[in-house]
């Protein structure tokens, strides 16, 4: 089965729509949303309704820290993020807020774990920045492959049976087989707010039969997404960063 995985959509309608089209064109049979549906971007209602609709049709979604902050105010966000959360909260209906509040922190499927931040303590919202962070997450689960997001930069880590780690920045469009002899942590790039210097939206496909993961970059209408952020009175940096991918 071909899975399409999306992390950190962040209410960017133009980016998410482009990624959904790209995933469907590549034969996606099951969609996985790794959290942070809202926050930063200007189309939270559309983003929540879209994911909700996909879940009703069999997709899996887990909760991100921005989704969480709609119902449970966070004191650890920077000013721009907080401003966007407050604005988003004012936009969402009760039903939409309820959908976000009820998202699970993680989900397991076969030998795979889906979680927003990492596996050792999902509610602490830690980032996977290096092999040490990756090792902590991988030690915390028995499952062979963990998929996460949160840091907005794609990365692929592996751990050998003797606990030796490897790290790798995936090349877009090149499939990597997740060998069965070791365990893997696939960190997804961000759909709606990439921060690795490439403004193109990021998502990945995983083929459960061949065990191949392929990261993709999808160009989208950044100008419209940025204009909508400014038009809704959100902090301008949230719009400007989209065009530089930072």
């Amino acid at each position: 089965m071909r899975l399409a995985l999306f992390a950190d959509i962040h209410a960017n309608r133009q980016a998410f729509a482009a990624c959904l089209d790209a995933a469907r064109a590549r034969g996606a049979e099951r969609l996985i949303c790794l959290g942070d549906i809202v926050g930063y971007g200007a189309d939270p209602e559309w983003a929540v309704d879209t994911v909700k609709d996909l879940v009703a049709k069999g997709a899996i979604a887990v909760r991100g820290n921005h989704d969480n902050a709609i119902g449970v105010p966070s004191d650890s966000m920077n000013a721009d993020a907080q401003a966007a959360i407050d604005w988003t909260r004012s936009r969402l209906s009760g039903e939409q807020k309820e959908f976000l509040a009820e998202l699970p922190m993680s989900r397991e499927e076969d030998n795979r774990l889906y979680v927003h931040s990492e596996a050792s303590d999902p509610a602490k919202w830690r980032y996977v920045r290096d092999t040490a962070d990756a090792a902590r997450s991988m030690m915390a689960t028995e499952l062979q492959i963990t998929f996460c997001g949160h840091i907005h930069r794609p990365g692929l880590y592996s751990m050998s049976p003797t606990a030796k780690m490897t790290s790798f920045v995936p090349t877009a469009g090149v499939a990597v087989q997740l060998l069965t002899g070791r365990r893997w942590l696939a960190v997804l790039g961000s759909v709606g707010q990439p921060r690795d210097g490439d403004p193109a939206a990021s998502f990945a496909m995983f083929d459960t039969a061949s065990r191949e993961i392929t990261y993709y970059r999808v160009p989208y209408d950044v100008a419209t997404a940025a204009a909508r952020i400014k038009a809704n009175g959100l902090p301008h940096w949230l719009a400007d960063r989209l065009s530089i991918g930072r």
Binding site: L156, S160, V176
Partner: peptide, 11 residues
């Protein structure tokens, strides 16, 4: 391989 994880990297 430039486009694959280098498993010997830290082994």
């Amino acid at each position: 391989h430039q486009h694959l994880p280098d498993l010997l990297q830290e082994e």
